[in-house]
Write a protein that binds this DNA or RNA. Structure first.
Lengths: 154, 154
DNA sequence: CGCATTAGTGATACCTGGTATCATTTTATC
DNA sequence: GATAAAATGATACCAGGTATCACTAATGCG
């Protein structure tokens, strides 16, 4: 779900992007993209699949992979459990993951990019991308503490 | 392999840490830890297992998980393929991953920690950890270019 | 030391996230 | 509408990892 526009509009945007790259707008693809556009926040492959169970599992994974490859979705590997997928519109951002409730929020810190630029110029590297995930205990979960076994992530 | 000390010393350090936490120093555990201490840089579960094939697969994964949980090892999920494990002595650092040859190098940027501190104080969050992975094309791979299909990681 | 307690082991079966194969649609184009 | 190419979905499979459970062995106590 892209903020400020309807799900149908979001789906159209994705379909347009697919069409522009010469991909066919098949029935399964349309339904799948609609299901993806209707997700709030990040979602799992099984999650979208359950919305459109009539679409084959292979097609779900294939399409997700294609969309990630095209930069329309991003894939967030989680510390535990299945990776989450999310709309890449509004990128580039980083992720705040609550280790207790699993909620994922985006945040933007241009300083990170600045650090990477310095890094690239000091070494003989070409930076292609990066991923920053911050594991936190959100305000809500800090209260009902106890339940949380903080992960030793260094 | 911890720089500046021998593998045997590295293994002893790990075993000591295990013993201190009330874990038994069994034969398989000793051999496994030795194999881990002898690895240069990051390694895969299959990688260490192949060094000590007489130790059961379940035990390999169990022990890696334990060591990660104790903060002695860190687990680096890769963009493609099996996650890598590495000695956490010398942490906290971040990872430079060459998308072409797969080489992983560590780097340290205290600025990142500073950014996270600011983040934590501005929102009502408790930061438990973070992971920064930078995907690059290393100097070596930039030359034999072409072979590299840069990943669209945003 | 010798034995009991209990943690650890390894074989096996299983789970999840994802991919290869391939015969059968379905789409875009002419 | 015919046709060539792309996409689909059923199926089988793969990799990384975990649960189970009968068995083994490290530890601690007398």
């Amino acid at each position: 779900m892209i903020p400020g526009i309807t799900n149908a509009q979001g789906a159209s945007l994705l379909l347009e992007a697919l069409a522009q790259r010469g991909m066919r707008l098949t029935g399964p693809r349309r339904r799948l993209v609609e299901a993806i556009a209707s997700q709030k926040g990040l979602f799992t492959a099984e999650g979208v699949h359950s919305v459109v169970p009539e679409v084959g599992r292979a097609t779900v994974f294939r399409t997700l992979k294609t969309l990630v490859g095209m930069g329309l979705l991003c894939r967030v590997p989680m510390e535990h459990g299945a990776p989450r997928y999310g709309l890449a519109s509004r990128l580039h951002h980083h992720h705040l993951v609550c280790v207790a409730c699993g909620e994922v929020r985006d945040f933007v810190r241009p300083e990170v990019e600045a650090i990477l630029h310095r890094l690239a110029s000091s070494a003989d590297l070409r930076v292609l991308g990066h991923r920053l995930e911050v594991y936190v205990l959100c305000a809500h979960c800090q209260q009902k503490e106890g339940a949380c076994s903080a992960l030793p992530l260094a």
